[in-house]
């Protein structure tokens, strides 16, 4: 699987993401400038975290309109993998590649702290190296991570098994107290219908090294690059 990272102006976790991809894949990802439109030869497109266009207007809104996104949409329609983390998740919802929207945190404050999230299913290209129900400790760093969709959309996501991760407590239980940003149904990450597009707010790429925050995120990248999973 060959990976590329899209650079929008204002993105700032692209280096973190490149380290994680390189760690799992054994080679550095291609860097894609936001004006590029040729993504041929890539299997995985990653939209990293940060503040694209300063997050002015709405988080991810302007990045969603940039030239590269047409190519990302075509890649997704061909069944290619797209991973959006934090601002990348926001871009994916703004671009209509994932349903719903990310509103301001219910606390109205930026949250930069560890969260625990639960792996909802482990039969996807992103999660097969985890156990279903496994609890991961991953850092959040966002002001707008409060997942919103109307009730019908939420029901469809649940019914189709497209909720990838949920905020939970250390024991894996979902509760209001364990939902840091007010997300609907404690949703931390969702999949597209074909489960090839994943968006999530916390940062698995910051958890690939025991010295810097633990390794709970590594298996997500290893899942993607593992040849064994069909």
């Amino acid at each position: 699987m060959k990976a590329g990272i899209v650079l929008f102006p204002g993105i700032n976790r692209e280096r973190d993401m490149a380290l994680a991809l390189e760690r799992a894949a054994g080679r550095a990802p291609r860097v894609i400038w936001h004006t590029e439109t040729d993504l041929d030869g890539l299997d995985l497109i990653v939209l990293p975290g940060g503040f694209s266009y300063g997050d002015y207007l709405r988080c991810g809104a302007m990045a969603a309109q940039s030239p590269v996104m047409g190519a990302v949409r075509a890649h997704a329609q061909r069944g290619g993998h797209v991973l959006g983390v934090c601002n990348g998740f926001q871009v994916l919802t703004e671009a209509g590649l994932l349903p719903g929207a990310l509103l301001r945190n219910a606390t109205l404050r930026f949250i930069a702290a560890d969260a625990t999230i639960r792996v909802e299913r482990n039969d996807t290209d992103y999660t097969h190296r985890y156990r279903a129900g496994q609890v991961l400790r991953v850092v959040m760093a966002h002001g707008d991570g409060n997942y919103y969709a109307d009730a019908a959309t939420l029901d469809r996501l649940e019914g189709d098994g497209l909720v990838a991760f949920r905020y939970c407590d250390a024991a894996g239980d979902v509760s209001e107290a364990a939902n840091p940003n007010g997300s609907a149904r404690a949703i931390a990450g969702i999949l597209s219908r074909n489960r090839r597009v994943l968006g999530l707010m916390p940062h698995p790429e910051n958890h690939i090294d025991p010295l810097t925050g633990g390794t709970d995120g590594l298996a997500l990248f290893e899942s993607l690059f593992a040849a064994s999973y069909a």
Binding site: R58, E94, G100, A101, L103, Y148
Partner: peptide, 9 residues
Amino acid sequence: RRLLANTVI
């Protein structure tokens, strides 16, 4: 429609 508002929300 295209940029200034997100009609989902």
